[in-house]
Amino acid sequence: MENKIGRVITIKIIDENDKYVFGQHDGETYRLAKEELRSIPKMGANVSGFAYENDKHQLQITKTIPKIGIGKYAFCDVVAVRKNLGVFVDIGLPNKDIVVSCDELPELTHLWPKKNDRLLIGLKVDHKGRLWGDLATEEMFRAISVKADAKLRNKDVTGTVYRLKMVGSYVLTNDYQLGFIHNTERDQEPRLGEVVNARVIGVREDGTMNLSLRPRAYEAISDDAQMLIAALQHNNGHLPYTDKSSPAEIKAYFGISKGQFKRAVGHLMKAGLVQQIDGELRLNEA
């Protein structure tokens, strides 16, 4: 069975019932759902399909060949999690989800993939003839990746976390660039298989991107501070107001108290977005 499961085989039709036709290959009987067939094959005819053991532990073939196989890898969606076994992944079989064993997953279960996360996997068969998902290796990710352009700095990218380390998380973007999120550039560690939106904070010489899950400075500031940024952008980057301006002037122009204004200016200065010079609040150049 080890040489047949997970591969395309040809069976010789020997029987049928209401739902299936049955065929043999090397002395073993496989079923094929009639709903997959345009016409019912004659007895003795040969039919090819992908061989697997269905969820009732019956040998079966399907004409719908999965996008992954033994030595063939692709991204597949996680559909369920079982703590004592691993995660179940949909590879396109009609009545069978494939398990990625807990032995291949992070030691901390809260970092396991959740439903709708995605994993780059192939297939493997164990010594008992059981089909399992096989996580792609670091070398495989590097082989399919392309170098990132330095122009991507400060751009947003979307990618899938494929490797977890103490120092940080490794990501493959939707455009197949490699990225790394240092543990200082995230508030919490993303899961294996989690799809993340990140900001490019640097591009290394080898084309790998340094990424951050933290918001940009202007995204992390208060509503008052964002209002000040908008006002500056609409006034060529400078306004005749500082923390020395009177409460009445600030209230009349911005509609906030001087205390709110000072806190907002302080946040913006700390973020390196503005400065106060010659009685003006000025927007720093990017």
Score class of each variant (00 low, 15 high):
Glu2His: 07
Ile5Pro: 00
Thr10Cys: 01
Lys12His: 02
Ile14Ala: 06
Tyr20Leu: 12
Val21Tyr: 01
Phe22Ser: 04
Thr29Trp: 04
Arg38Asp: 12
Ser39Ala: 13
Ile40Glu: 10
Lys42Ser: 13
Ala45Val: 06
Gly49Asn: 07
Phe50Gly: 04
Tyr52Pro: 07
Asn54Ala: 07
Lys67Tyr: 03
Lys67Phe: 04
Lys67Arg: 15
Ala74Ile: 02
Leu85Phe: 12
Val89Ser: 03
Leu93Phe: 08
Pro94Ser: 11
Asp97Pro: 00
Val99Cys: 12
Val100Trp: 03
Val100Arg: 02
Ser101Gln: 08
Ser101Arg: 12
Cys102Pro: 03
Cys102Ile: 15
Cys102Glu: 15
Glu104His: 13
Leu105Glu: 03
Pro106Arg: 01
Leu108Gln: 15
Trp112Phe: 10
Lys114Leu: 13
Lys114Ala: 13
Lys115Ala: 10
Asn116Thr: 15
Asn116Phe: 14
Asn116Leu: 15
Arg118Cys: 10
Leu120Ala: 09
Val125Ser: 02
His127Gln: 10
Gly129Asn: 06
Leu131Thr: 03
Leu131Pro: 01
Ala136Gly: 10
Thr137Cys: 07
Thr137Tyr: 01
Glu138Thr: 08
Met140Val: 05
Met140Tyr: 12
Met140Trp: 05
Ile144Tyr: 05
Ile144Cys: 05
Ala148Tyr: 07
Lys155Tyr: 08
Gly159Gln: 06
Tyr162Arg: 00
Leu164Tyr: 10
Lys165Glu: 10
Met166Phe: 05
Gly168Tyr: 07
Gly168Ser: 11
Val171Arg: 13
Leu172Ala: 04
Leu172Asp: 02
Asn174Val: 09
Asn174Asp: 14
Tyr176Pro: 00
Leu178Met: 14
Gly179Ile: 05
His182Val: 04
Glu185Trp: 08
Glu185Asp: 14
Asp187Arg: 11
Pro190Thr: 06
Gly193Ile: 05
Glu194Lys: 10
Val195Pro: 03
Val196Arg: 06
Arg199Val: 09
Arg204Leu: 03
Ser212Gln: 07
Arg216Gln: 10
Ala217Ser: 07
Ile221Ser: 13
Ile221Ala: 12
Asp224Trp: 09
Asp224Ile: 15
Ala225Glu: 12
Gln226Glu: 11
Ile229Thr: 11
Ile229Arg: 08
Ala230Arg: 13
Ala230Gly: 01
His234Glu: 15
Gly237Tyr: 06
Leu239Gly: 00
Pro240Leu: 00
Pro240Thr: 00
Tyr241Asp: 00
Asp243Lys: 11
Lys244Asp: 14
Ser246Cys: 03
Ala248Ser: 13
Gly255Ile: 06
Gly255Asn: 05
Gly255Arg: 10
Arg263Met: 10
Arg263Cys: 01
Gly266Leu: 07
Lys270Cys: 07
Gly272Glu: 06
Gly272Ile: 06
Gln275Ala: 10
Gly279Ile: 03
Ala286Thr: 10
Ala286Ser: 15
